[in-house]
Amino acid sequence: MKILARLIPHPLLTALLTVVWLLLVNRWSLNSLLFGFFLGLVIPVVTAPFWPDRPTLRGPLKIAEYLAIALWDICVANVIVARLILFKRAQDLEPHFIAIPLDLRHPEAITALAATITLTPGTVSADLSADGHYLLVHCLHAPDPDSVVEEIKDRYERRLKEIFE
């Protein structure tokens, strides 16, 4: 077991690299599976110094749920933003910067949250506060900034907290 842990320090990354390699080749063959797995063995070992305090991910079901919600929100967001762009006069939009207090502490978790916010409707994450306790988010149209904070905290941050901590 110990040897296995030494050989594959990061099983998730190994699996991901193998799958990405297979997708890149775009044709199923034993050759590419073996080469992909070889890459999956070497790359995590070589890059190990770059992830010193790697958080452990918990609950594959929760991750799947999070991804599904994020994907759905991205589609809805696209339609909402398209409607704002097409049918609202530019001077009627109320763009705002808002500060979101963060409960997350892992850099990886905060990165995931910031990326999700950028990909979903009408919000772009812009900056982190000096000590990482707040996230600066720009909203395209937010008549009620507090409800946006509430929604992001409840919809994404709570789920990420369960996954990462």
Partner: peptide, 15 residues
């Protein structure tokens, strides 16, 4: 011109 980030006082960019 930005909302204040509570006890951190400054955003990372301005820091």
């Amino acid at each position: 011109t930005l909302p204040t980030p509570g006890e951190d006082r400054l955003w990372a960019t301005h820091d």
